[in-house]
């Protein structure tokens, strides 16, 4: 069974985003970029399925600029077997990415498709669900545990107020939540090995997918800032302020 994993190159988790003054977007020039943390978890889960003998091949796919090669090399160093870059300089929105991934899914016929539940740049949380719908597949989003039982996938998922477990016929789409696993650190020998693993490059045009954005971003601005309040000396002063000033007690 093949596993396809989608990965995205995003502004590093530890870098504070800077909004451009002209409202045109984020200032990403020279900023550190990394693999979206949820996608790292997805890759880790795929590699574990392979290590457990459940999967035979892990294929990492990324859609984006040439630089996304770095993200795919990281995926290969983590244990993916080969990579596919769908290269474009165009702005890609979740619907377009889902359409691109569907072409790859149709071609590769994987048993499981893993994605991060959301990317930490646009915080959209859509691509996995859209891919599942377009490919006519069942989905388990926000996964906290994945196992293969016979020809079905058993997934525990995090929902508001608790957890639920789904049983899915394969192929199925799974999106990873934070606590699905802890991704491994990439070792130097594995980074060297990753350089020799195959990476195919294609384009949206070659795949026959129109990626014209449907959403126009008119403006990106800083959120209203909250001004810092006061420090109170003790509990009595705090409770007094909450009662008399803020009137929330």
């Amino acid at each position: 069974m093949k596993v396809v994993v989608a990965v995205k190159r995003v502004l590093d988790y530890n870098v504070k985003p800077r909004v451009r003054n002209d409202g045109s977007g984020l200032d990403l020039a020279n900023a550190k970029m990394s693999m979206n943390p949820f996608d790292e978890i997805a890759i880790e889960e795929a590699v574990r399925l392979k290590e457990a003998g459940m999967a035979t091949e892990v294929i990492a796919v990324s859609c984006g600029t040439t630089q996304s090669q770095e993200t795919l090399r990281t995926a290969l160093a983590m244990g993916a077997d080969r990579a596919i870059l769908i290269e474009t300089d165009a702005e890609l929105q979740p619907l377009s990415v889902a359409k691109l991934l569907k072409v790859i899914v149709d071609r590769e016929a994987p048993g499981v498709i893993l994605l991060g539940k959301q990317a930490i740049d646009d915080d959209a949380n859509q691509t996995g669900q859209m891919l599942a719908a377009l490919a006519g597949l069942p989905q388990a989003t926000f996964a906290s545990k994945v196992s293969v039982e016979g020809d079905r996938l058993i997934v525990a998922r995090e929902v508001d107020g608790g957890e639920e477990t789904l049983s899915l016929p394969m192929p199925a789409v799974v999106t990873s939540d934070l606590r699905l696993n802890e991704p491994r650190y990439v070792s130097l020998p594995n980074i060297m090995k990753a350089k020799k693993k195959p990476m195919e490059t294609t384009t949206p045009e070659m795949l026959g997918v129109d990626v014209t954005p449907r959403l126009q971003t008119l403006r990106v601005e800083e959120p209203a800032t909250r001004k810092a309040g006061i420090k109170v000396p003790d509990v009595a002063a705090l409770l007094g302020a909450l009662r008399d000033e803020a009137k929330v007690l």
Partner: peptide, 18 residues
């Protein structure tokens, strides 16, 4: 969690961005 799980499926089937 329910809305986020469902909305993108509907949008994709309508060929609409969400």
């Amino acid at each position: 969690s329910q809305g986020k799980n469902l909305a993108p499926r509907i949008a994709a089937k309508l060929d609409a961005a969400q």
